[in-house]
Amino acid sequence: MAALAGGGYAGLRAWPIGKEGARITLDGDARRGAYLARAAGCVACHTDTAAEGPALAGGAALDTPFGSFVPPNITPDFEHGIGSWTPEDLGRALREGISPDGEPYYPAFPFEFYAGFSDQDIADLWAALATVPPVAETRGETDMRFPFSMRSGLKLWRATALLEAESAPVLGRSKEWNRGRELVEGAAHCGACHTGRGLLGGLDATSFGGNDDLPGGSVAPSIRAAALKDAGWTANALAYALETGITPAGDVFGGSMTEVVEQGTSFLDEADRRAIAAYLLDPETELSEIDALAQLR
């Protein structure tokens, strides 16, 4: 039995994951990359703002039933950060959830939402991260409970529970709505918090229904269109809240949503905040003018 278990573990270790991508040789736009880093929550997650930690030098621990996840240092420091990485390493980490040495990342890192990032997105993020001051420190280590501490087991999880986000444009929808879809379903990864998870931590197939069991005991409400409208949200109110954190009732966001706004959505331009609101409040597929005319024939 021990030999069988050992053989199974060795097989998992040897099981290749991911795919070999082409070199990323595009010139990056650091300004666009910084904007994308805000939209994608990189700053909010990888900066311990409560402890006034350095930007992107590592975030506060996320306590879950599987153990404690600590967002790592992603400054250009060679020893403690990602200074030894290549743009391809960054692309593989973000789009596939695989480290430079080929190990799978835990799903606390929402890589499934970044799968649609283009090579230009990766080049822009790489250029932006290169401008961050390197920080020669590690702010903690991820500490997983057995058997979740066996990272190779994540290969089985990827094969059974991983759901990649769908953020591609929908034919017949407005440019604003599709931009909202790109952000909500992709970079902004709203579903990572506002969607429930199964026993193994995989996202439920039905999105945005709320999550009562976030790390640290936080709760994320449903952000489905009906729930938002029942709670008094309008497109104007939602766009305003993403900028200020103030709700239609005059209250303010609490929990992790505070950091999402302060370190992320408040930095987005008004058009993108309105696009997010347009998508969340009108998720149904809208017929294009041509499709509508065709139905009248």
Score class of each variant (00 low, 15 high):
227 A>M: 01
138 T>Q: 13
178 N>L: 07
187 A>E: 12
2 A>W: 14
196 G>E: 12
235 A>P: 00
47 T>M: 06
272 D>V: 04
149 S>T: 08
9 Y>E: 09
143 D>I: 04
250 G>M: 00
180 G>S: 07
106 Y>M: 08
237 A>E: 07
151 R>Y: 08
248 P>R: 07
283 P>C: 04
254 G>K: 07
149 S>A: 14
58 G>V: 07
214 L>H: 10
208 F>A: 01
14 A>N: 13
8 G>D: 08
183 L>A: 07
71 P>D: 06
288 S>K: 05
246 I>H: 00
170 V>E: 13
281 L>T: 01
156 L>K: 04
251 D>T: 10
125 L>F: 05
181 R>S: 05
13 R>P: 00
143 D>Q: 12
188 A>S: 14
238 L>E: 10
54 P>E: 08
288 S>L: 06
54 P>F: 03
49 T>M: 03
3 A>V: 12
274 R>T: 04
198 G>S: 04
65 P>M: 11
212 D>V: 05
152 S>W: 15
139 R>H: 13
103 E>R: 14
63 D>G: 04
63 D>N: 11
254 G>E: 04
163 L>F: 06
145 R>Q: 13
167 S>V: 02
12 L>A: 10
116 G>R: 10
9 Y>W: 15
160 T>A: 10
254 G>Y: 02
96 E>C: 03
232 G>Y: 09
66 F>I: 00
60 A>I: 03
291 D>N: 09
180 G>L: 09
16 P>M: 08
257 M>I: 01
35 Y>P: 00
62 L>R: 14
1 M>S: 14
88 E>T: 13
25 T>I: 04
150 M>R: 11
168 A>E: 15
269 D>Y: 09
76 P>V: 04
185 E>A: 14
68 S>A: 14
149 S>H: 10
56 L>D: 08
68 S>C: 08
72 P>A: 14
20 E>H: 09
249 A>W: 06
213 D>C: 02
284 E>I: 08
265 T>S: 08
94 L>I: 08
191 G>M: 07
157 W>E: 07
144 M>H: 06
145 R>V: 12
106 Y>F: 15
203 L>N: 02
24 I>T: 06
262 E>I: 00
230 D>E: 15
29 D>R: 10
183 L>Q: 05
164 E>H: 14
207 S>R: 14
234 T>C: 03
76 P>H: 03
63 D>L: 11
45 C>L: 04
266 S>H: 06
209 G>C: 02
11 G>T: 11
3 A>H: 12
107 P>H: 13
81 G>K: 04
29 D>A: 11
53 G>F: 05
118 S>H: 02
6 G>K: 10
266 S>N: 05
153 G>D: 06
241 A>F: 01
201 G>N: 07
